[in-house]
Each structure stands twice: as C-alpha cells, then as structure tokens.
Nucleic acid binder design. Sequence first.
DNA 1: AATTATGTTCCAAATAATGGAACTTTCTAT
DNA 2: ATAGAAAGTTCCATTATTTGGAACATAATT
Lengths: 271, 271
Amino acid sequence: MNEDMGSEGGKNKVRRDRETGTLGKLVSLLDLVALADGPMRFTDILTSSDQPRGTLHRQLSHLVEEGLLEVDRDGRYLIGLRLLTFASRSWARNEFRAVAEPHLHRLQEYTGETVHLGVLRGAEVIYLDKVEGRQSVRMYSQIGNASPAYCTGVGKAALSALDEAELAARISGFEFRLYTEHTLRGPAELLSDIAAIRARGHAFDLEEHESGICCVAAPIRSDDGDMLAGVSVTGPAYRVTPQKLQAWAPLVVAAADSIMMDMRNRMGPKR
Amino acid sequence: MNEDMGSEGGKNKVRRDRETGTLGKLVSLLDLVALADGPMRFTDILTSSDQPRGTLHRQLSHLVEEGLLEVDRDGRYLIGLRLLTFASRSWARNEFRAVAEPHLHRLQEYTGETVHLGVLRGAEVIYLDKVEGRQSVRMYSQIGNASPAYCTGVGKAALSALDEAELAARISGFEFRLYTEHTLRGPAELLSDIAAIRARGHAFDLEEHESGICCVAAPIRSDDGDMLAGVSVTGPAYRVTPQKLQAWAPLVVAAADSIMMDMRNRMGPKR
DNA sequence: AATTATGTTCCAAATAATGGAACTTTCTAT
DNA sequence: ATAGAAAGTTCCATTATTTGGAACATAATT
C-alpha cells in the first residue's frame, strides 16, 4: 500500500523504494531540504543523500531551474517559493475545505477557541484550515502541516471511522514516538482510545502531541469512505478544561455532520 | 475576482524548452493541472499535453504516487495536498518573511487596511504574507499567489529598485494584459511610472490589477540586490482615497526600510 | 603561495523514459 | 439489455536521459 513513512522520524536517505523513477529521487531531495533546519550547502545534501556528486549537482540545478528549490546568496539550497504558488492553488481549489469553511467559523465563534480541519493521509493528518479568534501572530502556521494521526484529536477521530481491518492495517505502519508524557504509547493504548471514541462519537487530545494543548474532535467521512477527515476545537489546557471540552463535543460533532451533509449534497448529483 | 493565471502566458503545452529533462515535463503537468478550473480527466490532460497515452499515464501515476497530484473518486486529477505540506515548510522557514512580520503588523494596525509582502520572481510577484484587520473570510487566499509585477504596487515598487539595464531586460519579457481600464498598457507607460516611483520612493496601484482596489507600496532590496521585494497597504478605492495613500506613503517606506535594516543585521554577520 | 575543501563539467555505460499497439473497462445510445 | 464507442491501462522493443567516476575549476584556509 502507500507506505507514507513518518516524515518526522526518518533518516532521510534519498533512494527509497517507492517506484517512481526519477521523480521519486527528486522529491526525496525536496523533502530532505524541506525538513532541514535551515539552508543546506551542496556538501550537506551530498552527505545525506548518498548520490554521486555529478548526479546530485544536475538534480539540484534542475530543481532550482524549475523553482522548486532556491539558492541563497551563499549558494545554499532552500525550498522554493514556487511550491507556495502550487500550494495556494491546491488550497484555493479544495472543495472540501470550501464546504467546511462556514462551519469552522461558526464553531470558532461559539467556542472562542481555535478550530482546525484536517484530513488523514497515511499515518498523518494534514491540516487544511485553521480558524483563530483573535488574530494571533502565527497566522498560517498550521495550514499544510503534517502531524502523526495517533496523537492528534483530528487524527484519532478520523481513524475511528475506519473499520477494524483497515484500522489494524494502518496502525501496523505507525511509528509511536513520545511527544509528551501523555502521548499514547503504542497500538494497544491507541486501540482502546479508539474504542472509546467510537462509543462517544468524539475524540480528545489531552496534551498528547504538545504539552499544555488540548482538543476535542469529531470524524468526517465521505459516503464512499475514501476520504477521512476531522474537525477540532483546540486551546490551552488552563483555559480549555475537560468540562468545556465535554460541553463542546456535541457542537463539534454537529459541525462535522453538517460538513458531511453539505459535502454529500455537493457531490451527490455527480458520480 | 482575482483572476490570476497567465503565469507565463503560455498555451500550456507540456514540452517546453527549459532544459530540465524529465522533471520539466512533470512540473509542466503539475502546472497544467494546477491552472485548470477544476479536476481534469485523463483525456483532458492528454489533449492539452501532447504526450503519448502510455507516457502520460505513467507520468501521472508517478505524480500521484508521490502525492503531488491526487485522483478524485471519479478518476479525475487534481493538485495534491503534499504540495501544501512542502509549502508550509517553505513559508515557515522563510527568514525574510519572519523578519518582516512585526513590521507588517505595525503597518496594519496603523492604517487599518490590509498589508501585503511580496517578492519579485521573474515577471511576477509572489505574495509571501498578508495581514488583515478584521479577520475576513478569505484568510489564506493571497499567500503564494503570483501576480504580474507590472500591475501591482509591490511589483512596480520592486522593479523600481532595478538599474536601467536589468529593468529593460526584464520588461522585454513582460506580456502586458489589460486587467482593468487602468492597467498600464505597455513598456512605455510602465517605464514612465517607474521613473515617478523612483523620484517619490513609493509606488501606487490605482485599480490597475483589480477594479476598485488601490494600494501604496515601497521597495525592499537586499544589500547585494539579488532579492527584490515590496510591502504595500491595500484597500477598496471608496475607503482608501488618493489622499490617504499619499499620507501613508512615508509609513510604508519606513516599514520597508526597517525590514531592510533588520534583514541586514540578521544576514550581516554571516557571509 | 601552497594546500585543502568545495563546487562544476565531461562522457561512456547503465538505466529509465518513450510511444505505438493491443487490451480492458466504462460510458452512451439504441 | 446490447452493441459500439470512448476512456483508461498494460506491454515491450527502441530511444533518450540519467548516472557516476574522474578530471577540472574555483573558493576558502593556512
């Protein structure tokens, strides 16, 4: 299946075994540069990519020429702005996001806390939208971000919508890493949490990904079940108490259901 | 609406002559799908890309496998979310954007109107950040967007920082298109506007790109001059009168200068 | 100025992309 | 429901591109 690897955890060797030929190697390079802490020199990339010098040199020039990478004035490579342009189109044209938007705003206004929309992709959740109350400084920070499914509210909610078989298959590919002292520690804990989520209809994240951050989330699945997503309301633990999360749960679930409905109505006629 | 596109001005044939080998062809496909109005079927892409069926089929599968494209449930292709993830990293790690952020906020608070930060890339301006007052509905809309340099405040401001020779060279590559009745109609008008911008130190966009939208912008150039950018304050013509634009100009210029300074301080030590 | 580290160019050999055609599946009109 | 057409997928000998070692050039360091 589509083994997506844990973009966080990997020694990023360039040759992977997904068979996508030349493209695969180039995308791995992009990934390598994107994940780095800062601009990388030719030699940095050379050592982490085990490609021969000549080869790497040409690959990088091609990526630069296409705007996928950029070179700073010290000749170091960083991820290119062209990707921003592609992404902005991807985002603007995303139907699901557009359908969900008004519901996210409503949820934000009611709770006063931050609302997230994320979709499940392999072992990760990719955040598609974020609505904040007071415009905080880190405006777009979260959009496009990929986080492990097993330690985020949205991720666990989405997972809970899978049937047993699919769920087991997915989880077997997860790599459990301890982000905080509350992070779930393995398949067993995750499965039992998911059972509870199924029973309740909503998921909690109690400082499992980031210390001091809690959320309540609900799953969204498309009719055919080939898209799984989730909505969540998130806030700092000192303000967002378990009682509040509990109280908001029905609202979050309702928002998720409305998004599902709207999506169904929009997609239904076609097909 | 903000009709963007026209990014290069091409009939989007896939084989272009930039020599980037296989990558070039694949990126052209991405571009084709990204620019389309909606999801494309295999055949749609086939006809607009003049690739043989077998070839195209494999290219698309590779792009999909890498997450750069996605396939909807009707088998149609659309731009993939993985690009969002790359972009979010590109954005989060962008030093220039980070340095500029506080200045943009200050400018926004003072004027109450929307502030943009954009960088010049070839004939286009790519918007790197946007700060709005009341959180409007279209949050992420502008970021990553590429617009022609010659009809945007940020673009013209950035162009004004080029020396004569470079400027002439760039302009020769522009394709002038009439977005509104106020859009500059060709190199001559642009050059004379740029002369004025140089004399004043700031640029105006008086409904040149979008009807009813005006802005005042100032150029930002790095010491070595290899990065050109601009800041602008933008708003609807009925509210943002020429007098206001005039009054804000010094602030915008000051913000641009501060960003330049901060950038110099941050970059200086290295090198 | 000499030495080393870093980046660039070259080209025969290896590998991956190509594209025509045969094949399968999905629509469409009767 | 069925035939026919359109859309999508697979196959494989041919062709073109990528590969990678090594020589060459340039910048940094002593």
